[in-house]
């Protein structure tokens, strides 16, 4: 069920990126899509009644991890994936915003229907 809501957020972002005419709104639409995918990735690792996967000294039993820790902690791998994905979307956002600013300097507008010099 929460996965369906995540997919709905993804569709909202896709709608915004496809339909809107202002460049900044398109960028925001792409950002919403990326957040929806990050949310989906984090939710994949969820476990009911789980705790954060941080090892402290009580979890080590005789040199290896205790069974209680392994069975009750949330999956940490999607969290590492999401960290990387957030960094990538940050870099992509910085590039998109700087191109928007440069385009505004040249064309004088943010409206994509007026930025149509390339045809054919």
């Amino acid at each position: 069920m929460p996965y369906a809501l995540c997919f709905l957020l993804f569709m909202i972002g896709l709608y915004c990126a496809v339909v809107k005419k202002n460049m900044v709104k398109i960028v925001i639409g792409i950002l919403i899509m990326e957040y929806a995918v990050n949310l989906f990735l984090v939710m994949l690792g969820f476990r009911w009644g789980g705790r954060a996967p941080i090892i402290t000294a009580e979890d080590m039993v005789g040199g290896s991890l205790s069974e209680l820790f392994v069975n009750s902690s949330v999956d940490p791998l999607p969290q590492a994936l999401v960290l990387t994905a957030i960094v990538i979307s940050l870099g992509s956002l910085a590039l998109m915003i700087s191109i928007c600013i440069r385009t505004y300097e040249r064309y004088g507008t943010f409206d994509i229907t007026q930025i149509r010099r390339l045809k054919g």
Binding site: A17, I26, L95, M96, I99, R102, T103, I115, R117, L118
Partner: peptide
Amino acid sequence: EELEASFKYMV
């Protein structure tokens, strides 16, 4: 034109 093309490609 380069900025317009780059924006389209990037989106």
